[in-house]
């Protein structure tokens, strides 16, 4: 049976496939990136690797997320700043497709409520399309 890592960003619940997650870091030291686009919070030093931190709340459409917990993804090597990491969960009811966000590939029910399963590949594509685009500054997140 699959188990997901359950996280909260703002008020929304999300699940991440364990295979896509490298590690979780609590409040690491965030370093500034010159000329960083709005969705890029900075970088963190993870075992001597420079890992960019994505403002996940902003990606979800919130004005200011500033999550202090980081979920480091396996590939691409990115960290998602989230509000809270709840640990592992077993989804009890799964439905394909997300409602609004293209990078949510499944909706499932867990003990904390209804959550969206993140498709890391689509998430990366969304970031590639929107994060560095010239209109990134004006947009509220990247919810295309």
């Amino acid at each position: 049976m699959s188990r997901f890592l359950l996280v909260t960003s703002g008020r929304s619940l999300f699940g991440l496939d364990l295979k896509a997650v490298c590690e979780v870091i609590k409040e690491p030291l965030l370093h500034d990136v010159p000329l960083a686009p709005p969705g890029l919070m900075g970088v963190v030093n993870v075992h001597d690797m420079v890992v960019p931190v994505i403002d996940f709340a902003r990606l979800c459409g919130a004005a200011d997320g500033a999550g202090r917990q980081m979920v480091v993804l396996e590939s691409p090597r990115l960290a998602l700043a989230v509000t809270a990491v709840h640990g592992l969960c077993s989804p009890s009811f799964r439905m394909p497709g997300g409602l609004i966000r293209p990078w949510v590939c499944e909706t499932f029910i867990c003990n904390r409520g209804v959550a969206g399963l993140i498709d890391v590949t689509v998430l990366q594509q969304t970031l590639q399309q929107h994060l560095l685009s010239p209109d990134a500054a004006s947009m509220h997140g990247f919810d295309g």
């Binding site: 370093h31 990136v33 010159p34 000329l35 420079v50 960019p52 691409p76 090597r77 590639q128 560095l132």
Partner: peptide, 28 residues
């Protein structure tokens, strides 16, 4: 250290390095 996505898309940055005190500094 070479830059990965999305850092490699920021014009003006050519690499990054980690100093002895753990600070990450970008090369311009």
């Amino acid at each position: 250290k070479p830059l990965s996505f999305p850092l490699n898309g920021i014009q003006g940055l050519s690499g990054a390095t980690i100093l002895g005190d753990g600070r990450i500094i970008f090369l311009l």
